[in-house]
Simulated assay, not measured.
Amino acid sequence: MIRIIGIAAVALALCGCSTTTPAERLASNQASCQGYGFKPNTDAYSTCMMQMDLEAKSDDQRRRAAIADALSNMGQSMQPSRRVTCNTFGSARNTGYGAFGNSTTTCY
Results as ranks from 00 to 15, higher is better:
Leu12Pro: 04
Leu54Ile: 08
Ile2Val: 13
Met49Gly: 10
Gly101Lys: 03
Ala70Lys: 00
Ala9Trp: 11
Pro80His: 05
Thr85Val: 11
Leu12Phe: 08
Val10Asp: 08
Met52His: 03
Ala31Ile: 13
Gln61Ser: 11
Gly37Asp: 10
Arg83Asp: 00
Lys39Asp: 01
Gly90Lys: 07
Arg25Gly: 04
Thr42Val: 10
Phe89Lys: 05
Met49His: 09
Phe100Leu: 06
Leu26Val: 12
Thr104Ala: 01
Met49Ala: 07
Ala9Asp: 11
Ala99Pro: 03
Lys57Tyr: 07
Tyr108Val: 00
Gly101Gln: 06
Thr88Phe: 02
Gly37Thr: 11
Thr104Tyr: 04
Leu14Ala: 03
Val84Ser: 08
Ser77Arg: 10
Lys57Phe: 02
Cys48Phe: 09
Asp53Cys: 00
Met52Lys: 12
Asp53Thr: 08
Arg63Gln: 09
Ala65Gln: 15
Thr21Ser: 13
Thr19Asp: 03
Ala68Lys: 14
Thr88Tyr: 01
Met1Trp: 08
Gln76Cys: 10
Gln51Asp: 15
Ala99Ser: 13
Leu54Val: 06
Cys33Pro: 03
Phe38Thr: 06
Arg64Ala: 12
Phe38Arg: 13
Cys107Gln: 05
Ile5Cys: 11
Met78Trp: 00
Tyr97Gly: 00
Met78His: 08
Ala11Trp: 02
Thr42Leu: 02
Thr21Glu: 04
Cys15Trp: 06
Ser81Ala: 08
Arg93Cys: 09
Thr85Lys: 13
Thr105Asn: 06
Cys48Trp: 02
Ala65Ile: 06
Ser46Tyr: 09
Asp59Glu: 14
Asp60Glu: 12
Ala44Met: 15
Asn29Pro: 00
Ser81Arg: 13
Thr19Met: 03
Met78Ser: 12
Gln76Trp: 02
Met74Asn: 12
Thr104His: 02
Asp69Met: 03
Glu55Met: 05
Arg62Gln: 15
Glu24His: 09
Ile7Val: 14
Asp53Glu: 14
Arg3Glu: 14
Ser58Pro: 01
Pro80Thr: 01
Tyr36His: 07
Tyr36Glu: 12
Ser77Phe: 13
Pro22Gln: 08
Gly90Asp: 11
Thr104Trp: 01
Thr19Ser: 06
Gly90His: 10
Ile7Glu: 14
Ser81Glu: 14
Ala11Thr: 02
